[in-house]
Design a protein around this nucleic acid. Structure first.
Lengths: 144, 144
DNA sequence: TTTATATCATATTAAATCTATATGAATAAC
DNA sequence: GTTATTCATATAGATTTAATATGATATAAA
């Protein structure tokens, strides 16, 4: 019942772009340093993100990435689905034909309920929410 | 973000014991036939379940398994946790020290919310609920 | 025009995990 | 003692995960 590193890293990557947005393009190298994630692995991940049109990219020197839209336009669910596929706890929920045992199967109702619960969380948190939380958290540290 | 076959099979196994309970001990072979799951694999799974005290077992001819308690005493969460461990989408939620980046990490709040949403589902469905749904579903078939 | 800095595209790999299967001992009913 | 069953552990094949590696392509700046 785990989310892969790709999903987790993708969210941190997108959040990093949102938090550190200055209008300039941010190279993967900077993000890899800040997030302490392998640069080459992040490259793979952002390639997927870029193909989905979630970020704008510029090649060459002074190049890098930028969010294509405003932080409030990205839900956590959008980002996770991009890397993980459907957020179902079992495959049969997403298969066209479903399962042969569907007529007798009761457990599928459990899986469906789990899926909906997860979706209800991730589809109602945006990058903007996380940016806000990040800033609140940063301010708190002065008082510790 | 998938539940393993062990978790899924364990739930079907426990539900099978609940639905087919006649007071006699049910051999794994019967369950494997009904559920169309490898007998040897189910043996492995029920060994874990048995060690946790969820079922009573009797060896030898005429032996088999029985639920140790009433169906209403088992939540789906209890069964899944037994096979899957904690139902966290990320490991850091369950590690004693947590994560080094915890002070700066905002994504952990997302994972925590997902975990709680999943727990809210699985801890509020019992085997008895599923037995009831199974019976309702069975009755419906006459009218299709 | 060269050099440094980046993205873009694929291939490869090591390790872990999943999903079983296999073998055989121990136990109990008949 | 034969058969049916749980109990215990070992083995194995397949898949997925999590990277690393190699190199081509594009751009800005020196």
């Amino acid at each position: 019942m785990k989310i892969s590193t790709k999903g987790r890293y993708a969210l941190r990557l997108m959040l990093d772009l949102a938090v550190n947005n200055t209008g300039e393009f941010i190279p993967i190298k900077r993000i890899a340093e800040r997030q302490e994630i392998s640069e080459k692995y992040l490259e793979q991940i952002i390639t997927q993100i870029s193909r989905a049109g979630f970020v704008k990219s510029v090649r060459g020197s002074q190049g890098g990435y930028q969010l294509a839209h405003k932080p409030e336009d990205y839900t956590v669910g959008m980002i996770l689905r991009l890397m993980e596929g459907e957020l179902s706890p079992v495959a049969c929920l997403d298969e066209p034909g479903g399962c042969e045992r569907a007529d007798r199967c009761v457990t599928v109702e459990v899986w469906q309920a789990i899926k909906e619960a997860v979706e209800n969380v991730v589809d109602n948190i945006t990058l903007a929410d996380l940016v806000k939380r990040y800033q609140e958290k940063g301010e708190c540290e002065y008082y510790i």
